[in-house]
Design a protein around this nucleic acid. Structure first.
Lengths: 207, 207
DNA sequence: ACCATTCTTGTACATCTGTACCATTTCGGC
DNA sequence: GCCGAAATGGTACAGATGTACAAGAATGGT
């Protein structure tokens, strides 16, 4: 047992090697979720994907619920980095028009190139609705992006950068959701660009 | 068999009484989904909720997949009516400010009073991502609302009513999604109103 | 070399799930 | 009242799933 090492008291303590293996398993889990959906993530499918016996999964994760939580945490951390990097790239000094097009590019890229991953994210978000520990995580999910967008809005001369960032983030999420069930080839990219340009210019023209 | 009655050829043909029973079962299914989520919808839970034996479920629905599809169709039809009614109510002659507040009211109502139902809708939407027959349905889901919003925007003097309606619908969906994992009591209603007012006024001021 | 700890692996179990099957009952037109 | 069709109810089954468990192998510090 070796007391008072893990606060949550929910399992073993792993050494370097163990942690590496654990991360490999989490990667395999994320791969399955991204490829075939959350419902395809069974312990056996996970063991097969990770190339380990079934027993190993129960050694590293006390329950499937814990596995999903940890996988979500890992994914959230990575995704946050990706998003921030994307926002930073366009930040320096761009026009409202450029901002709109960059947002459109980011959105379209997600809808086409990372489609199944995007779907999986929303699957997890919905799942978070019924698991409190996930809910807390998903609530802080967009905070960094919100900050970055708010900064960008401020540089563009927005008088209400925080609200404008919320508007744009909300709009992005909504457009994503609206296009989730549209096959990639049928996505009207011009319409998306048009919508974002219209929104961005409307917001920043009225400040 | 009695040929050429059902085009899809996927089951029996039901008479009035049968159709009524079928609808009752579908209602029970929707109740389960709304209360405990899509994953809680098992044939046994359905039979129990509807107060029928297990065998009856397989008599009325050739497969669980068909059940979900029909349940989704039923829900979509009802929801469309509800949405249109809500939009019509505010339509006659209202200011941009009023439109924004009505949209906020609609949104907040969904997030608080019909929360689990809203979550279930997004669960089905995600599910539709991986079932083609559902995808087609969910694609036409918002068409009526889009039309209503577009009309309202036109009356308000928008020069691009179609695009503006898309923007507002996208924003609504995004705000919904962003708040799915927020417990109802923690929802910042003032912020939502503020965001919608800002968006509506920005859109219609720049036309 | 020894040993406690960490890790691995195979198997077993109780439960749940979708669906098939079939005998029985009820219904609606004649 | 009669009969074919519609509807009902109970049960069985094959497969999948999360988890428990125990015996063995590897590891690293002393």
């Amino acid at each position: 047992m070796s007391a008072l090492t893990a606060a949550a008291g929910d399992g073993h303590q792993f050494s370097q090697r163990g942690m590496k293996r654990k991360t490999e398993i989490l990667d395999a889990a994320l791969r399955i979720i991204a490829r075939d959906g959350l419902s395809a993530l069974t312990m056996r499918a996970l063991a097969s994907e990770a190339g380990i016996p079934l027993g190993a999964t129960t050694y590293y994760f006390p329950s499937k619920s814990a596995l999903i939580t940890e996988a979500f945490e890992l994914h959230a951390a990575r995704e946050t980095d990706r998003v921030i990097a994307a926002m930073r790239k366009l930040s320096p000094e761009c026009s409202a028009h450029q901002l709109a097009d960059e947002l459109a590019k980011f959105l379209i890229s997600g809808l086409t190139d990372h489609r199944s991953q995007l779907i999986a994210e929303y699957e997890l978000l919905i799942g978070a609705t019924r698991e409190p520990n996930l809910a807390a995580l998903s609530r802080t999910w967009q905070a960094p992006m919100r900050q970055e967008l708010s900064d960008a809005a401020g540089r563009l001369g927005s008088l209400k950068p925080v609200v404008d960032a919320q508007v744009l983030l909300g709009l992005l999420a909504g457009l994503e959701v609206d296009h989730l069930s549209v096959e990639p080839s049928a996505i009207d990219k011009a319409a998306i660009r048009s919508i974002l340009r219209r929104s961005v210019s409307a917001l920043f023209a009225s400040s």
